[in-house]
Design a binder for these strands. Structure first.
Lengths: 259, 259
DNA sequence: CGAGTAGTTGACATCTCTCAATGCCGGTGG
DNA sequence: CCACCGGCATTGAGAGATGTCAACTACTCG
């Protein structure tokens, strides 16, 4: 299914040097002993494969709130695994506004968009102080040697990303503001839950404007929709603090279309 | 970046047998002698890699207009390369309406969404009589043996698909009806051009409703927007026949947001 | 304390959707 | 051959959702 990319936008980019090399923190990490191992890259791996992964010892890198991990057009070298913190990925529109294409929390992988062209097609920015593992993509593919279990893992990850985006397209293409925001909140809830945090109460790391950009609506509509959910006793919202008071109701809102 | 998938949709699928096995047409194809080789899977390959690809001789399959190549939930076995004709991919919404997620013409590959879960997440249907090559995914990955050039090709294809969807999200998230339709027409134009057909005049294989679903708008709005383009002397539209009379103007329309 | 950022809310404009009528075309059957 | 039908596209009128612009508040940071 390739090639449906938008035409002719020819992002008139000023060529520029890549971002400064990662200020390599000395610390390195072994996947098998990471508390995120069941969510992250090693998920589903064992034995020799996992050993091979462990032998790689990925460098960690810290990204302060507001700083970028990589920018649009940077050379693609690493897949990054989020250890802690939150990132957002975004594309620049021709007029300079940004379109947020995803948010990433601990255990999630970022940067697979770079494989196609050897350069990143999006920028990724920290929403709070964040730490990532930098996984050299070339190593990953070369080292996989004989049975390419690793390649398989990567393929699956990429396919999952395709699924994710497909669902997001569906959301953008055919849902209204309430359904979109409900889907967004439920999705966050589920991801926090999977990481052992509360799935009923959490803190948003992104602004209303960033949520709006991601969901294809204005920040005012995001705000109003939060207020509406609160009035419907689905959520309690205080700025960026969210408490889900009626999970089922929220799901209904989202699945309004199921009859 | 996985895991942002929509939550809780849990597509309540009735389990059902997979589609009938492809009525294997006897004819098989050798990639290196295919007229689509520079657009399709073998693109960029040569020497031993291409020989290896040739040794596989993929079976062809015909799909009549309106018939499905695979359905949502079918076991994922093949990547399909379009030889001739047009396909659409779509997801089912909970309420039974479809969301079109892509159109595919000759030389394009379909079905990479299945890698993640071993089952297809979307259905793919022929918009006209269509012929595809069925590429067994398992072969592709196993056979790549030593240097996994093939795996690399697949990864690149998948990454390209991620880019494509990212751009589509951008379109759905932050463009109005005119910009969306202009982007759509320009994209088709470019793809036809790359295949040696006219990039100024072509026949749409999809209905207004399908275009609308793909672009996140109603069929009426698609129709009205075509009419508007015609009044602005950008296009001549006669049902499904399109003639671009002002390519630059159309690009401007699409890039309205620049500066 | 003042400035800046983020969020909320209101009033209004506008775009797109919804519903409905009509036209066009190709196929089918009398 | 013609009438009728169904599917697709076009067009109009009105409704509704969301965007735009603007005011105001609460907080944070110098």
């Amino acid at each position: 299914m390739p090639a449906v990319s938008l035409p002719a936008v020819a992002p008139v980019r000023v060529l520029r040097e890549d971002a400064p090399p990662p200020p390599a923190t000395a610390s390195k990490t072994q996947c098998s002993s990471c508390h995120l191992r069941d969510l992250c890259l090693p998920c589903g791996m064992a034995g020799a494969d996992l050993d091979r992964l462990d032998s790689m010892r990925f460098a960690r890198r810290k990204v302060k709130a507001g700083e970028t991990l990589y920018r649009e057009g940077d050379r693609f070298q690493f897949i990054h695994a989020v250890r802690s913190g939150t990132l957002k990925s975004s594309l620049m529109l021709a007029d300079g506004r940004e379109q947020v294409s995803g948010f990433h929390i601990a255990g999630e992988l970022v940067g697979l968009d770079g494989v196609a062209q050897g350069r990143h097609a999006s920028a990724t920015t920290a929403l709070e102080d964040t730490e990532v593992c930098a996984i050299p993509y070339a190593h990953l593919t070369s080292l996989s040697g004989g049975a390419s279990v690793m390649q398989h893992v990567i393929s699956r990850l990429m396919s999952r990303e395709i699924l994710r985006e497909g669902k997001l397209m569906m959301l953008l293409g055919s849902m209204n503001a309430e359904e979109r925001l409900a889907a967004f909140v439920l999705n966050l809830s589920q991801r926090f839950g999977a990481r052992g945090y509360s799935d009923r109460e959490f803190h948003l790391r992104m602004s209303r404007a960033e949520i709006g950009s991601y969901l294809g609506m204005t920040l005012e509509t995001v705000s109003r929709t939060f207020t509406a959910f609160q009035q419907q006793r689905l959520l309690e919202v205080d700025k960026r603090h969210i408490r889900i008071t009626d999970l089922e109701g929220l799901k209904d809102r989202f699945e309004v279309r199921v009859h």
